[in-house]
Design a protein around this nucleic acid. Structure first.
Length: 916
RNA sequence: GGGCGGAUAGCUCAGUUGGAAGAGCGCUGCCCUUACAAGGCAGAGGUCACAGGUUCAAUCCCUGUUCCGCCUACCA
């Protein structure tokens, strides 16, 4: 028997392993430009090559897979292009940690060997995430797996760099940049995370040079940088200080006098004392103020953000000898404490207050970043940003949900030049060379021996190393030691992965891609830059839609992190509850604009859903022996017509929701349909037919059963690929795999409003009888006689037609007759909206519950009646509300009052019985 | 400081041409009824954050307030 083919409970593991292998071996996911169908393409946001799948990936990838599987079934020429990112700083940090465990360092290895070591690590751990993705059922074209440091992609990077340089959009400059003193590299502005912290505001006394008894009080949050001060600013309109502009103050702890300048940009009259110290080498605002007033920049910190050595410090700042000695080599926090003490001893510390401030931290290692003066490479971004703004403005790119468009616009309009050089080793080395010969030799950095190349040294920018210096002809050229920001290569991802700069058929077919699915956190890092680069180098947007999904948090709404120990491991839950359950959970929770608080119970709930589906299929298989005959829908039974109508509705809704990226609503609709319509009602309704041998409706019912189940499996497949494939293969079907079947479209003959209306009467009636059964404490298995009737003659007739279904679903015998003809004795009557049911009351039944229920319902009905009637008595309402609303209210009053009367009558009878 | 989002059942969340408040989980009661106890049936549980306004009518539109998130920012 067919039924024996399926176990009683669904066991996902075996099924998933089998199908994920099978799909791959059959090449269903392989894309080719020659394939028919309108192209539909997605490039995956490349995860870190050495990473492993976390629940954020699971969400991101599940949504993309739903879209891809759906479009594939719709007959589109689909490509889902997978890949991984070299993740410069992050990966380098990981490998450095490994080295440290072995007592090594990257410096001790040297650049070449270190980079080899990273490649080695990539080759051992690089497949982890890819294998996990396959386990999740991701239908990527794995033959096209790309890596940002592949030969082809690296070629694209060089091409882009050189062209941007030639267009004057890449330049080298000396600027204050964000520096991570732990990673020892520059960061771009957005690689700095801001965190609010409780800091202190220090009030320092700077005595006037020509009048030491008078002091200017400056307020600062960073007293430890005071040795680097080169001026004090006041507001030019400030009557308190106006007269001091042009004079000098003696910088405490030093022998240096610094000028008082007037600066209306830097100084806020309201804040602090209205006087600000200016430290151009260690603060972004001060840097700009320094430019305005042509001030010196005195660097007091080294690359580790420690105070420089005694000699340097003394020379640069003219600090008193014992001061320089006391501070040399101290890290920031210790410097602050120490300098607070020293200032205090010198009578230069006026006051300290608590103060809330924002602290910048490295997004990779959370170390406090320092503004740091250095020579870096930058992308001049405005000329690239403008077309990228237009593309969103004029709708060539749609951001979904739309609410993020403003964020994007705001950021793009206010964008600053992008610092793209990183002082690390893992990444695309900058294709710029310098002639040491022409420039009189380069100094080398102490910690990693990198050449220090002054700003006036002219770089030779080319895709490959120039054979010789065009000036002096030497072949001994030095390549810029820096590598490019990881996000530089990511920015090219939508076209570099398709073969650019070659003009490949893939580019022609699949670019622009259809949609980019990503989290909000990389909107600026990645999405904005892809748009800029796509427009610049492809002359077209990289994608038409950007769908931004939520962040996955834990059940308490906390961000998941290893240190908090609240991480939900997708592989663990896939193992525990099944991959389909996880995928469905994530889809169902992907509401726009709200973060996902993921709890395991939720996943368990959808595991149960999978089991429900499994058992529905078992049920179907159990009763499928026998002929199946195809009748036009109108000739089929009420349950068949009803379920087809509901199925048509579900197909329409799911498709529409997917079109608008409402995965949550699509999932809910599927869940409701399958569980509460298909299983709860349809399968129950057809049991009598299936269980009666030679039933006249048997053939058609069996056909409808298969037809609806098979269609439902296809409809659900993008969400739950494994279980649907397994079931689909087991039930009658045509074709090799559900993966390549057509996505359902509703048959025009399916919608049947009359059947739906008929059914809702059935549902209402069954509900009422069941309520009565519970009120009278009749066990579910006990057969009971009951009456049903309706005020409305039409409905009364429909009840007649429903008699068999009513009897079956209520486990009893149904007598359909007008309520007034029913016996008045020993009968519990329940009434709602004109529908009455009556259930015989046997001798020893406790009537209290039933009476309570009636009393309560009467009260509720009466309250509602008063409310609606009140509205109708309101002259304004009657004169101003639309007629159909008024008619509805009037009808409702009638129904409610009739119900009320009948209920009251029933209550009376029961009370009489109780008394007797 | 600016901007955005949220506040609906015990919990997590849906809910648009304004016109009788929904789901899942949890809870209560009765049932191992031959697809499924990972289940069935029935139920309890909401002045839709607060205060105003518009309207015949507001969870929904407008204004303000409070609380919570996020993004962003140079207030030392």
């Amino acid at each position: 028997m067919a039924a024996l083919q399926l176990d009683k409970a669904y066991d996902p593991k075996a099924v998933e392993t089998r199908w994920s292998r099978e799909w791959l071996s059959r090449g269903y996911f392989h894309a080719s430009p020659e394939q028919p169908g309108q192209p539909y393409s997605i490039v995956i946001p490349p995860p870190n090559v050495t990473g492993s799948l976390h629940v954020g990936h699971a969400l991101n990838h599940s949504l993309q897979d739903i879209l891809i599987r759906w479009r594939r079934m719709q007959g589109r020429n689909t490509l889902w292009l997978p890949g991984t990112d070299h993740a410069g700083i992050a990966t380098q940090n990981v490998v450095e940690k490994q080295l440290m465990a072995d007592g090594l360092s990257r410096e001790s290895l040297g650049r070449e060997r270190f980079v080899d070591r990273v490649w080695q690590w990539k080759s051992t751990s690089g497949n982890t995430i890819v294998n996990q993705q396959k386990q999740l059922g991701e239908s990527c074209d794995w033959d096209r797996l790309r890596f940002t440091m592949d030969e082809g992609l690296s070629k694209a990077v060089l091409e882009v760099f050189v062209r941007l340089y030639e267009d004057g959009l890449i330049y080298r400059g000396e600027r204050l940049i964000n520096w991570c003193p732990r990673c020892l590299t520059a960061l771009s502005d957005i690689e700095v995370e801001h965190e609010d912290v409780k800091g202190k505001l220090y009030y320092l006394c700077y005595p006037l040079a020509d009048d030491p008894n008078t002091s200017l009080i400056v307020a600062t949050t960073r007293p430890e940088t005071m040795l680097g001060d080169t001026a004090v600013a006041v507001h030019p309109d400030d009557p308190r200080y106006r007269h001091l502009i042009g004079k000098k103050v003696r910088l405490p702890l030093t022998t240096r006098d610094i000028p008082i300048v007037g600066d209306s940009i830097l100084v806020d009259l309201e804040f602090g004392t209205g006087a600000v110290k200016i430290t151009p080498a260690h603060d972004f605002n001060d840097f700009e103020a320094g430019e305005r007033h042509k001030l010196n920049r005195i660097r007091i910190l080294d690359t580790y953000a420690k105070m420089r050595n005694e000699t340097e410090l003394g020379l640069a700042t003219k600090a008193l000898p014992d001061i320089a000695r006391a501070l040399a080599g101290l890290p920031t926090q210790k410097t602050r404490t120490k300098i607070e003490q020293l200032l205090s001893e010198h009578g230069a510390l006026k006051n300290v207050e608590d103060h809330k401030m924002a602290l910048g931290k490295c997004y990779r290692c959370k170390t406090v970043v320092e503004p740091y003066l250095s020579i870096q490479w930058f992308v001049k971004i405005k000329p690239l940003a403008e077309p990228a703004i237009e593309a969103v403005e004029d709708g060539r790119i749609r951001i979904i949900p739309n609410s993020w468009t403003n964020n994007y616009m705001g950021w793009m309009r206010d964008i600053k030049d992008w610092c793209i050089s990183r002082q690390i080793w893992w990444g695309h080395q900058i294709p710029a060379w310098y002639c040491e010969q022409c420039n009189g030799g380069f100094l080398r950095s102490t910690h990693d021996n990198r050449p220090l190349i002054d700003l006036d040294v002219k770089p030779i920018v080319a895709k490959s190393k120039p054979e010789k210096c065009p000036q002096c002809g030497t072949i001994d050229l030095t390549q810029d030691p820096d590598v490019l920001d990881t996000w530089f290569s990511s920015a090219l991802w939508p076209f570099s992965t398709l073969g650019w700069p070659e003009r490949t058929p893939e580019l022609k077919t699949y670019y622009p891609t259809s949609v980019l699915v990503t989290g909000l956190d990389i909107l600026f890092f990645w999405v904005a830059r892809m748009i800029m680069m796509g427009l610049k180098f492809m002359g077209d947007v990289p994608f038409k839609d950007v769908y931004i999904h939520a962040l996955v948090r834990d059940a308490e709404g906390q961000k998941m992190s290893k240190s908090k120990g609240n991480v939900i491991d997708p592989l663990h839950v896939m193992n525990q509850f099944g991959t389909d359950a996880l995928r469905f959970t994530l889809a169902s929770m992907a509401s726009p604009g709200r973060d996902i608080k993921l709890a395991e119970e939720r996943i368990e709930g959808y595991r149960n859903f999978a089991n429900k589906i499994w058992n529905a299929a078992r049920f179907a298989l159990m009763y499928l022996d026998g002929p199946r005959t195809v009748l036009p829908p109108v000739q089929r039974t009420l349950p068949d017509r009803w379920i087809l109508s509901r199925l048509a509705h579900t197909i329409r809704t799911v498709t529409a929701e997917l079109e608008s990226y409402r995965f949550d609503r699509a999932a809910t609709v599927l869940y409701q349909f399958i569980w509460h319509e298909y299983c709860d009602w349809y399968l129950e309704l057809i049991k009598p037919v299936l269980q009666t041998p030679e039933h006249p409706d048997g053939g058609s019912t069996r056909h409808t059963l298969v037809e609806t189940l098979e269609t439902t499996m296809r409809l659900l497949h993008p969400f739950m690929p494994f279980i649907t494939e397994e079931i689909w293969q087991t039930i009658p079907h045509h074709g090799d795999s559900i993966v390549v079947q057509n996505y359902p479209i509703p048959d025009q003959a399916w919608p049947a409003p009359d059947a739906e209306q008929h059914f809702s009467l059935l549902e209402q009636t069954v509900g009422l009888v069941r309520t009565g059964r519970v009120l009278l404490n009749y066990p579910p298995g006990q057969q009971i006689p009951f009456h049903v009737g309706h005020d409305d003659l039409n409905r009364q007739n429909q009840l007649h037609q429903l008699q068999r279904h009513l009897a079956h679903l209520n486990r009893g015998t149904a007598e359909v007759s007008p309520p007034r003809d029913w016996p008045s004795e020993r009968l519990l009557r329940l009434v709602t909206e004109g529908l009455s049911v009556g259930i015989a009351v046997v001798e020893d039944v406790d009537l209290k519950k039933a009476i309570e229920r009636l009393t309560r319902q009467i009260a509720e009905t009466d309250k509602e009646l008063q409310r609606v009637d009140g509205k109708l008595k309101n002259v304004e309402f009657v004169s101003k509300a639309p007629p159909e609303v008024i008619a509805e209210h009037q009808e409702r009053v009638q129904t409610l009052s009739r119900d009320c009367a009948l209920l009251a009558h029933s209550e009376q009878q029961l009370r009489a019985m109780l008394a007797a």
